[in-house]
Design a protein around this nucleic acid. Sequence first.
DNA 1: GACTAATATAGCCATATTCTAATATATGGC
DNA 2: GCCATATATTAGAATATGGCTATATTAGTC
Lengths: 115, 115
Amino acid sequence: MNEELSVQFIKSASLVLRALGHPVRLKIIDYLQDGKKSVGEIQRTLNLSQPVTSQHLRYMYSKGIVDYLQSGTTYHYFIANEFIQKIYDCVIDSQQKIQSGEWEMESMRSMLMED
Amino acid sequence: MNEELSVQFIKSASLVLRALGHPVRLKIIDYLQDGKKSVGEIQRTLNLSQPVTSQHLRYMYSKGIVDYLQSGTTYHYFIANEFIQKIYDCVIDSQQKIQSGEWEMESMRSMLMED
DNA sequence: GACTAATATAGCCATATTCTAATATATGGC
DNA sequence: GCCATATATTAGAATATGGCTATATTAGTC
């Protein structure tokens, strides 16, 4: 028992987590910490193909992860809300705690080494 | 530029996020807040089939999300590390901020309504 | 060693992801 | 209206995921 997450929110949260659970998409969110970025900037900086960049951005847009402002033919994407930002902050914070040794995590270490 | 996440950690973190990005798995993590639980307890409490329960647990075990202690034929699973716990805490905290209205998130609301 | 309970695994099928290559759309300038 | 640039969309193939049913494994008991 003792469920803390509502059935409704579990659906939404798992959608968000899955959306962030792809290396390219997480990398895009990382890059967007810098502020709004155009598709072209994202593509060139992260060294992705144009369709892949656009597809991941549209996917994230459809899930409410990012939003955009259009000026001319250029689309400036940005992180859509505080929930996404908070998850990202949590990931960043965890990276630091693992790297600094504040958390000694055998299982994490094996993950960090793999591949 | 200004990338904060290392290439290595992006891989690990996206694995973790994807692993949590499934309603059943997130629900299991939610239930495990109570402490160690056996496969049978999880299965009955969350109203899942035996194979589905076992498969998701083994999947999460293979990703370092959960760990277990065996006693006899019973396996007691628990959350494997602080990273997973922190992500979960973040999700819980966000749920509260959204529900209380501290965050007004149009995009989230649409997600919360859907389906 | 047979029996039971608890869990894991295998095989199968339907569906979803993700990438590539090619094409379409839309905006602004001329 | 035509052109160039920026981005979106489509189609298709390869692979991954998720659930079901059935079966296997393992530990304890007698």
